[in-house]
Design a protein around this nucleic acid. Structure first.
Lengths: 253, 253
DNA sequence: TGTTCTTACTTGTTCCTACATGTTCTATCA
DNA sequence: TGATAGAACATGTAGGAACAAGTAAGAACA
C-alpha cells in the first residue's frame, strides 16, 4: 500500500524544508518545472502544494510563485496528543524525565477539580518534557488514584501516560478543557528549564475527561515561551453565543 | 469581480450549516448530485468541499459521503468579536483609548503580512483596551491604507474598528489566524498598563481576513496575564493529521 | 435467519486541456 | 534615461475523463 503521489511529493518538499535545503522565504520551483521534475501532472503538484499550504509550510502568490513560509502558521485545534504528534511530525524527538512520582492527599483544589474527597489518594506525576533532549515544558499531572491503582509502577519516562491509561485502565482520554495563561517563571522552573531570569512561561491548566465526561486528570504545566506559541484560527461570531474559546478576567493575585 | 464558483458553492453550503438546514452529523448530497444541482464539474464541487473540510466544517469518508462535523462540539474557535462580547456578557464595559494613529510606510514584515509593497502606506492604530476603565491590553493594528482611505478620520476611542471597516469600507472581518505567546512586558507596556515589573503578558499576533481571504489587518497586542487567560476545549486526535491547534518551537530569540 | 458474495454507489487520485488573472521582464518609444 | 506596452511566465479556476479504493445494500446461498 503505497503512498499517493501528491503525498510523496509533499513529503519530499517538507524534507527539503526540514533539512534546510529550502530556507524560510525561499521560492520553490514553478509548478511546471516540479511537474516535469517529478514526471507527474500539474494537478498532482498543485495538490501537494495545497496540502503543504494548508499546513502552513508554504504559501503561493499568484503570478509570482510559491514560497516557504517565514514563520510557520499552522492551523489550530489542539488535540490531546498534539504535542507529541506535532514534534514527531517535525522530526523532533519528544521525551520525558520523571521529576517526581508519588501519591499525595487531595487538597481543596484537587478535591474540587478531580471530584474526590479531601485527603483522598491522588497520583502526582511531575515530568520534564524534552524536545530533542532539551527542556521544553514542565508538567504536573494529578490523577485520582482510585481509578488507576498501581499506575506508578509504570515508568513514564519511557511510557506515555495516556497510552497506559487507555490500555491498562480502560480510561481513554477523550476531551479536555484547557486554560492558557502567562507568568514569570519561578526560580525553580527557570532552573529546571535552563532559562535566564526573569523569563516568561506559558502556563497551562487542563482537565482531561473520558468520553463520559469523567475528569481523570488535572494538569498544570509551564512551557518555555521563548520556544513555544499556540496557534488558533478565529472566525467572525455567529449569532451563537456558545463561544468555546473564551477569555475572561481572573482575580488579580 | 465575481467570486469563484467553488467559493460560491462553499458559501452556500456554509449558509445551510449556519441556518441549521444542515445539522451537525448530517450527510451532504453526493458530489455527483451536487455537481448536477449546481451545474458545475465535479472538480469544482470537490474544491468547495475541500475548502470546507480544511476549515473543519465538514469531513468526507471515502465510499460513504461527506458529513457536517459534529461541530464544534467544542468549538475550539474564538470569535473575532469575542473580547467585546465576552466582557459585555459579564456586564463589563469595554473601551479604547487611542494612543497613536497615523500612516506609516510598510516595512518588510508588513509587506509580507499585508501583501503590500515595501514602503506602501499602512494605517497604524495603537490603542489601549480598557475594561471597566482599567487597562487590559495594548493593541497595535496595521491595515493597508489603500483599502480604507480616510479611516483615520474616525475616532476609534469611540467607534469599533471592525464596525467601521464593515459599514464604511465593505470590508467585513470574517476569520483570522492568531498566535498566542508570552513575554516579559517591556517597561513601556508595563507603565501604560500600570503593572509592576517584571510582569508577564500574553502576546497576541493576529492576521484578520475578509471572507475572500484577503488580509485586511495585522495586529500585535499584549494582554495583562494577571487578569486574562484564554480558554479552549481540546479533543482526542482523529486520524486526520490536519491538527488545527498546534504548538511548535520557534527560534530562540 | 444468518452469512457471504456481488453490484451499485461514493469518495480519492491522477492526468489532460483551456482559459483567467497577476507578475515580471524585455523591447520600444519619447 | 525613464515610461509604457507587450510578451513571457506563474499561479488560479474550471471542465472532463479514467481508474482506484472503500462502503452499503441487495441477492444468493447455506
Amino acid at each position: 500500500m503505497t503512498k499517493a503521489l501528491y503525498q510523496q511529493i509533499a513529503d519530499s518538499i517538507l524534507e527539503q524544508i526540514h533539512t534546510g535545503e529550502l530556507q524560510p522565504g525561499a521560492r520553490l520551483p514553478s509548478e511546471k518545472s516540479l511537474s516535469e521534475k517529478h514526471q507527474v501532472g500539474r494537478n498532482t503538484i498543485r495538490h501537494a502544494l495545497s496540502y503543504l499550504a494548508a499546513k502552513g509550510y508554504v504559501e503561493s502568490v499568484q503570478g509570482v510563485g510559491t514560497f516557504v513560509t517565514e514563520t510557520h502558521f499552522p492551523k489550530t485545534v489542539e488535540f490531546l496528543y498534539g504535542f507529541s504528534q506535532e514534534m514527531a511530525q517535525r522530526g523532533k524527538v519528544v521525551g520525558s524525565r520523571v521529576l517526581e512520582a508519588k501519591i499525595v492527599p487531595a487538597d481543596p483544589l484537587l478535591t474540587r477539580v478531580l471530584r474526590v474527597q479531601l485527603g483522598a489518594e491522588v497520583v502526582f506525576l511531575n515530568r520534564l518534557r524534552l524536545v530533542d533532549g532539551k527542556p521544553a515544558a514542565i508538567e504536573r499531572a494529578y490523577l485520582p488514584h482510585a481509578f488507576c491503582l498501581g499506575i506508578l509502577e509504570h515508568d513514564f519516562g519511557m511510557e506515555s501516560l495516556y497510552d497506559v491509561l487507555a490500555s491498562q485502565y480502560n480510561m481513554k482520554p477523550d476531551h479536555a478543557e484547557q486554560e492558557i495563561g502567562a507568568e514569570i517563571a519561578t526560580p525553580q522552573v527557570a532552573e529546571i528549564m535552563g532559562m535566564d531570569q526573569p523569563a516568561a512561561v506559558l502556563v497551562i491548566h487542563r482537565e482531561t475527561r473520558t468520553a463520559d465526561g469523567r475528569v481523570i486528570e488535572y494538569v498544570e504545566s509551564e512551557f518555555r515561551a521563548d520556544r513555544f506559541r499556540f496557534y488558533t484560527n478565529l472566525k467572525a461570531s455567529a449569532s451563537s453565543p456558545t463561544a468555546v474559546f473564551q477569555r475572561f478576567p481572573i482575580q488579580s493575585s
